[in-house]
Design a protein around this nucleic acid. Structure first.
Lengths: 220, 220, 220, 220
DNA sequence: CATGAATGAGTCTTCATTCAT
DNA sequence: TATGAATGAAGACTCATTCAT
């Protein structure tokens, strides 16, 4: 009945009222996301979200047990959408292209949805996960697995085809993830990190090439 | 004359009292650092710092104009120490080894001083830098330049020796920095990112190799 | 919608809850006023007001955006009451009597409601007005106009009837206001100013006569 | 030895050191006055005064027991200077002119020395006087008496000459003082009180005329 | 005497969460 | 179910005054 309900498969959507209630949940999340767009997203208050969603503050708590619950739902929703975006290009047979596709899709999703991406970053923190209810925790773990599973499969194919170094896929993924996370962080926070670069796009190109190079280069 | 005074070269530390005052400043910073060790470092209050340093709250404000001033001083101090650590191995002639040295030194410094490192990360944020006084801003910029200067010189040598791709050193640095930042972030935040890894050391080894590979691999 | 709402004409006070909320606002103001009674009124804290009103500190901020907002509402409320008090005697035809009536009503209101009067004095300060929201600023200006309008009309009649000197009513008002303000200030602050006087009433009589004399005396 | 010492007649100014000490006191007061020039004078801190006087904060407390003591000394000094200014025109024989002279001198002194005047206003407050040491209290009382004595004598002459109404001089003074205080207050605080007036000078002229008119007008 | 470092109570304001209607 | 008023702990920062050197 709470935030996480959006992911449970409602077998029998009983009635008008229930549908309305479900829709309200999405409205709250949408309001939150629109407010989180600015870099000081952590300072957005529950009251502001409620106002933006044109509902009462108390109602927010009918849908989400606490503020963290809102964060969590934004994050899981976003992660799900990324997975979906990945799968659109599933048919690619060239492994290296597939990897590049994943990288570029990831950049697109993160930079195109800064609010959700920022929240998702926050939701990766260990201490955040600790605070979560077991249900949400499990949901995050499931999504994490889907990510590693999806990317891991592709990397494994690359290894099998001799395109990538024969190392545990988890290890290969670490470098990718670290570079991606670091790059995104730099873009969000920092004038400091990418000053000589004319624009963001160039930066992303450089980083993307670096990611692939690091992956392939490990081979020897 | 306040916090930042630690960086001015006191030509003649006139008296006992002045020395005591300077020491007190270090005690405050040490207290802050010890408190920032925990992942919730941002929630540490000035009062807690004062209590830890066994002084009154007001005294903290005799040394630092505001909380941000404390952050900034921890960060600049840490950055200075890293630069010093880099330079110890200055005599290395093998470029690739020099790069590896920088990477491992960085990991050692960041993971060995999590509090200061965390704060330094925070101090890289653009909005933080904006809030700073011109003096501190300039100091940060100077340190930033020393970093890019130091690493840039080594990378340039690598390019000249044909060991690294002939690209602007700034571009080469971006990948390195992004991966490093991302890896550090993963370690701090996350159980999520390195689950299959037995220990942190392995993770660092993997990332370090990845960084070098990404650098060298760009060549072709 | 906050503090100032007391002055908007609630067309349909929709519900019990709304009425309760409005009442609470009055209770806060009443608590503040009762606390402002003592001469150190400026040192009264929001917390004290809240405690007196038997509510939480945070609740105060549901009704008033800041401390100044409380001051402003007390002042506008008081000014409105004075205007109402003036108008009770509207039918007077003797101009000099009307003026005396205004003077004595003013003294009664200011001395009978020292807290509100003191705050109102404070709210006349230019720097206070600057800090105000445009809405409150406008409300004050409106009230100021009503005051000058009301008194100005009477003075103008006096001029027309040849009872008062033919000068701009604004000029006539200045002397009145200065004397009144000064007298009130003396009473509030000072043992110093009226020592030989047996009691306050005598002082007021003297000042009132002086005010009228100054007004009429300018004629020649 | 403290602030108030400046008014005791040093019978034997023993030596260099003592003179230096006495001069220091004047420097502190001068620093304070220069700082009190701005309308937010009450927010000036002891530290600011010390810095301006180019001495240590502790030294201030060697000369003045507390902040109020500084206020008091500024006020008594200013009051003394006003009395001196009054007496310059002592030879005037026309009573009405003498009164006008007092009024205009007062305006000149108060508007020409806003810092000292403001402080003096503050020092007239009953609660301020209460906090004072008996010595300072007595000094203020002495000065108050000199004021009432000086002006009272002139007014009495006016009464004797049939120029002023035959009332207790104290009563006559009350109106004058109230108007003067109110006018000064209006000028300091207020955009509100003198809007239609082109400039301050006009306002003062109007008020001055009003004061004389009030005085003389009481006659009948 | 001169100093200025140290103090800590006191200020306003914010906000996630609760709960009665 | 929806609401929004109420809560109160918490936080950054100030400043008159003291006191050891």
């Amino acid at each position: 009945m709470l935030g996480c309900c959006s992911t449970t498969t409602d077998e029998k959507p009983i009635s008008r009222k229930q549908r309305e209630f479900a829709r309200r949940e999405q409205e709250i999340l949408a309001a939150a996301v629109s407010l989180f767009e600015n870099p000081h997203w952590e300072t957005v208050t529950v009251e502001q979200i409620a106002k933006k969603a044109e509902i009462g503050k108390g109602t927010v708590y009918k849908h989400f047990t606490c503020k963290d619950d809102i964060y969590a739902n934004i994050s899981t929703g976003f992660m799900t959408r990324i997975l979906t975006a990945y799968r659109i290009h599933d048919e690619r047979t060239e492994i290296i292209d597939a990897i590049k596709e994943i990288i570029s899709t990831s950049f697109e999703m993160f930079l195109g949805n800064p609010a959700e991406a920022r929240v998702s970053f926050y939701c990766k923190r260990g201490d955040f996960r600790e605070r979560l209810t077991p249900e949400l925790k499990a949901e995050f773990e499931m999504l994490d697995e889907q990510f590693t599973g999806y990317i891991g499969t592709i990397l494994q194919k690359g290894i099998n085809q001799g395109l990538l170094p024969n190392k545990p896929v988890e290890h290969l993924m670490m470098g990718l993830e670290a570079t991606f996370d670091g790059a995104i962080g730099s873009i969000w926070n920092g004038d400091i990190n990418c000053p000589q670069v004319e624009d963001q796009e160039t930066y992303i190109t450089i980083i993307s090439e670096y990611m692939v190079a690091g992956l392939v280069g490990l081979k020897k």
